[in-house]
Design a binder for these strands. Structure first.
Lengths: 345, 345
DNA sequence: ATCTAGGGTGAATGCGCTTTCAGAAGAGGG
DNA sequence: CCCTCTTCTGAAAGCGCATTCACCCTAGAT
């Protein structure tokens, strides 16, 4: 910059103005400066600019390091599709990028876990605000960082209550799904397969299930009929068989806390010669690509993942504009996707 | 940082050392500093650090702003799949992110075109090096920027020869594909539908086609039988019909410069009652998800898009380590995917 | 007890830019 | 021709950190 100033015979202040407020510099001078910059191959230092202006024009995203479970399962189911299938984080990235672009921000993405707290601080120090996927960053780190810049938490429980927070309507979705099975298909004996107790998503879905039971006047269970530990296809298969083998009447429907398990269940039921949906209805949750492809196609609840990312950016931008705003907790609506596995296909 | 230093009774130099070279500070002192940092909610400024150390630990990617044509077409064909399908840029991002993470870098992504040269400079000023997708950034801007930091060009022609450059083996792929049709299926009358003259990819594919003709002793065309202007499904359908309606013998195979057009052709041929592959073989190029789903499934050439991103990062990292290295031009291998539309399914 | 290392720490400088705050240069008006 | 009002430009003070260099202190050596 000093070189550019010297070469064009002005001061560095003027060079700065040429880039920041072009109109405040006489056209002639401006041209001289730009020409010099071109000749010298001048690239303004974002760091210096950021330092001086205390703003970066960048938003960040921290997402989990681990390969997404969805991905593994999809690849396993159809390795050809590996490259074609969007992961949860891919969709969030896409949503955030779109929204960030609209607001003139760039997006800095970093998977965490790897570098420990260092990597979080790394992005935190370089952005005006950022979003974290649940369970990506230790709560205590977030606690510290969020005192300094806007942070929005995506999905998961609201661990820090002064943070903006976005979730999808897990309970609403599952309730609506169960209601559909009960009212529209006339099913009465529903079994719910949950996830780990620590999974707030799975728990919220179970809550929705209970609400639907209560609304329909059916017995309201205290806990899921079964729990899977890791919500995979294998666990789905295992729990499905366990339900079949249980004493008493066979359930008319199995509701799984996510699509992975439901798909696993579908396969297990096929092996056992149990027809879906004739003998039993099966549902999932998430709306992963695989849910469309399996036979029978899976009735599920679709999450608006991309919107999650877009909303995150909106919240960040809002808060950057008004840091006094009350922290909000957004709940995004989901939609039941009726397919073959409940008898709608 | 000054606050942290004061609170923990040390100088800012020591605070800095705590973060940069923890071992050079006595454990006791270090703990004091970290505790103070925690209490104060200290977040090191990436900007200041970058300024002082002249390095950011961030790599960048500039990609086109426009919605990817693939995406539109897919959405059009199956709107349900909209969220599930990865775009070209999504895959590049994924590849780069993975590789960047391995090397300890974060990734800054920004769609260009929108902000004009400003947005390019924005990322350029904030990263240690970056990749651009072809036709994203004006050559002259690249010329200037690449004098200051490593830039690698992904796909497209090599406009600046001192830049690292990565392409896929378009010609090889198409040659192999044509060879397959000729040798394995015994086809002789092949028609090639190209794209715009300015599309280096389409041109390279045509070159491969010519090579296969030459190798097989068939007549070698000077130009594609037809050219599409925008390589869409609609154009694919149009050109397919034009080929059918042409004087003389009907071709035994139609090779399209990309999958989009081939899919359009498939539909047009079906409407015309021409059976694929019995009456005519059809092939595409790219390996987009849609190519698997259409009936008959499309024989095509798959590009290793994710590797494109990974390799870009590798090249950047290499160059950051040794700025004197000769510029390289990498060509990534592609693979022919034999499906139903050529008679292999 | 004196000297010598050497680890641990502090003072000071600069990274490249933004941003007041003034001052200089034109443009009119009296 | 002098004075005031704009418009444009320059000087200088940081922004928050890394880093050199010098210094101090404590151990071990003599």
């Amino acid at each position: 910059m000093y070189d550019v100033a010297e070469r064009s015979g002005v001061s560095i202040a003027t060079v700065s103005r040429v880039y920041r407020t072009p109109d405040s510099v006489r056209a002639q001078t401006r041209e001289r400066v730009l020409e010099a910059a071109r000749q010298l191959g001048y690239v303004p230092s974002g760091n210096a600019r950021g330092l001086a202006s205390r703003t970066t024009g960048v938003l960040g995203l921290c997402f989990p390091d681990m390969a997404d479970p969805d991905a593994e399962a999809d690849a396993e189911a159809d390795s050809d599709a590996d490259d074609a299938v969007m992961l949860y984080s891919d969709q969030i990235i896409r949503g955030m990028e779109r929204a960030a672009r609209r607001h003139g921000y760039a997006l800095l993405i970093a998977a965490s876990l790897e570098g420990g707290p260092e990597s979080v601080a790394k992005v935190a120090g370089r952005v005006d605000g950022f979003a974290v996927l649940a369970q990506t960053v230790p709560t205590e780190d977030l606690e510290v960082i969020s005192r300094r810049l806007p942070v929005v938490m995506i999905a998961g429980p609201r661990e820090i209550d002064h943070l903006d927070h976005i979730v999808v309507a897990n309970a609403d979705g599952e309730r609506e799904l169960a209601r559909h099975l009960i009212e529209d298909h006339g099913l009465r004996r529903l079994a719910f397969v949950g996830g780990e107790v620590e999974s707030p998503d799975a728990e919220a879905r179970f809550r929705g299930f209970r609400e639907a039971c209560r609304d329909a006047g059916l017995p309201v269970p205290d806990a899921p009929d079964l729990r899977a530990e890791i919500m995979t296809q294998a666990e789905g298969a295992r729990t499905a068989e366990a339900l079949l083998d249980r004493e008493g009447e066979r359930p008319e429907a199995m509701l799984f806390a996510n699509d992975q398990m439901a798909v696993g269940a579908l396969r297990a039921l096929e092996r056992r010669g149990v027809r879906v949906p004739e003998d039993i209805a099966v549902t999932g949750f998430d709306g992963i690509p695989l849910s469309r492809i399996v036979r029978p196609s899976l009735t599920t609840v679709r999450q608006p993942i991309r919107q999650l990312g877009e909303q995150a950016v909106e919240l960040l931008v809002q808060r950057l504009g008004d840091s006094g705003r009350e922290p909000v907790s957004l709940m995004l609506p989901v939609s039941v996707v009726r397919r073959a596995s409940c008898g709608c296909g």
